[in-house]
Write a protein that binds this DNA or RNA. Structure first.
Ligand SMILES: [Zn+2]
Ligand SMILES: [Zn+2]
Ligand SMILES: [Zn+2]
Ligand SMILES: [Zn+2]
Lengths: 147, 147
DNA sequence: CTTGACCCCGTAGCCGCTCCAGGGATTCTA
DNA sequence: TAGAATCCCTGGAGCGGCTACGGGGTCAAG
C-alpha cells in the first residue's frame, strides 16, 4: 500500500502522514526499490487510531501516550481514563468561553443594524469607547449576569 | 509611561506589546536616552482597543483592518459589520463542534467506570476497535442522531 | 514519447504569542 | 556604597499541528 492509498483509506492527508512519521508517531515503513513507502495493515490501523483520537481533539502527545499504553496491557488504565477526563474538562472550558463569546458578539452586532459610514457604525463606536474605558455592551452584559 | 506600566494598565503582557510593535500593529513609541520605550495616551487607547478585539477572539488581521477603518470615518461600515458576522459564524461553528466533541467524550468516558488494566480498559478497547473499522460509541452515537 | 499522476526530500510558513540568552539601567536595601 | 532585585533592551528560537513549496525522480496510459 503506497502513501496515497493509505491517505485515501484513512482520510489523513499525505503530508500529514509524512509529518507523523517524522515526529515518530507512525513507524517508518519499508521502501520499494524506487524509494516509495510501502505500508502494511499495522500502519493502517495505527493511523486510523491516531485519526480517531485527533477527531476527539486529543493532543498528539496524548495520542503518543495512548499508543504506548496499547503495548503495555498490564498497566493500570487510570492514566488513560484521566487523559479523557482532562480532555473533557478542556472541551467544557472551551465550550463555556465559546458561549460567552457568542453572547458578546451578538450584543456587539446588535449595535449596527444597517450600513452607515464607519464614523457612525455602532460596532466601531462601541469598540473605540471600550478602549477609552467606558463599559461596552459585549462585556458589560457579561458582568451584569454574574450576581 | 514605560512598557511595564502600559502592560499593567492594559493587561497585555510586555512581550506581547513588543510583538505588536514588531508586527506593525502598535506604533513604535519614542525612546528615552537609555533606550526605554515611552508610551503616550494614544498608545494606551490603541492597545486597549486591540485587547478588546482579542477578547472577542478576532484575528489580528481583522484588528489591523478595524484600526485602519477607525482612521477612515467616511468608509461604509459594511465591512466592519461583516467582520463581526464572520467571527460570529466562526464561533458558532466551533460551538457546534465543541458540543459534538463533548458528547463523544462523555460516551467514550462511560466505557470505563473503574480502573482496570489497560488491556481491559473500555476506553482503550473502544479506540482500538474503532481503528479496526468497528463502529465506536463516540462516533456511532453521532451518526444515529442524524435521521 | 509525452502527459499527468504519483512519489521523494528538505525547508519554510502559518497564528499569536512565549520564552530564552546575554546584556544594560535603575532603584531599593543593608 | 555595595549588592540585590527589578526593570528594560535585542534578536532569535520554540510551541502545535499541520500545510505549502521548490526541485526533483518514477511510472503507466494513450
Ligand atoms: Zn456598522
Ligand atoms: Zn466588550
Ligand atoms: Zn479505563
Ligand atoms: Zn469514535
Amino acid at each position: 500500500m503506497r502513501i496515497g492509498e493509505l491517505a485515501k483509506a484513512t482520510g489523513v492527508d499525505v503530508e500529514t502522514i509524512r509529518y507523523y512519521e517524522k515526529t515518530g508517531l507512525l513507524d517508518a515503513p519499508a521502501r520499494r526499490g524506487n524509494g516509495y513507502r510501502v505500508y502494511a495493515r499495522a500502519h493502517l490501523e495505527r493511523l486510523s487510531f491516531i485519526r480517531h483520537c485527533r477527531a476527539l481533539d486529543l493532543p498528539l502527545a496524548d495520542v503518543r501516550r495512548l499508543l504506548c499504553l496499547v503495548g503495555l496491557p498490564r498497566t493500570c488504565c487510570a492514566e488513560i481514563d484521566q487523559l479523557i477526563d482532562v480532555q473533557l474538562a478542556r472541551v467544557r472550558a472551551r465550550l463555556l468561553s465559546m458561549r460567552a463569546l457568542e453572547r458578546q458578539l451578538v450584543a456587539l452586532r446588535g449595535q449596527c443594524q444597517a450600513p452607515r459610514t464607519a464614523s457612525r457604525c455602532g460596532i466601531l463606536h462601541e469598540l473605540v469607547a471600550a478602549a477609552q474605558g467606558e463599559a461596552c455592551v459585549c462585556h458589560r452584559a457579561a458582568c451584569e449576569e454574574q450576581p
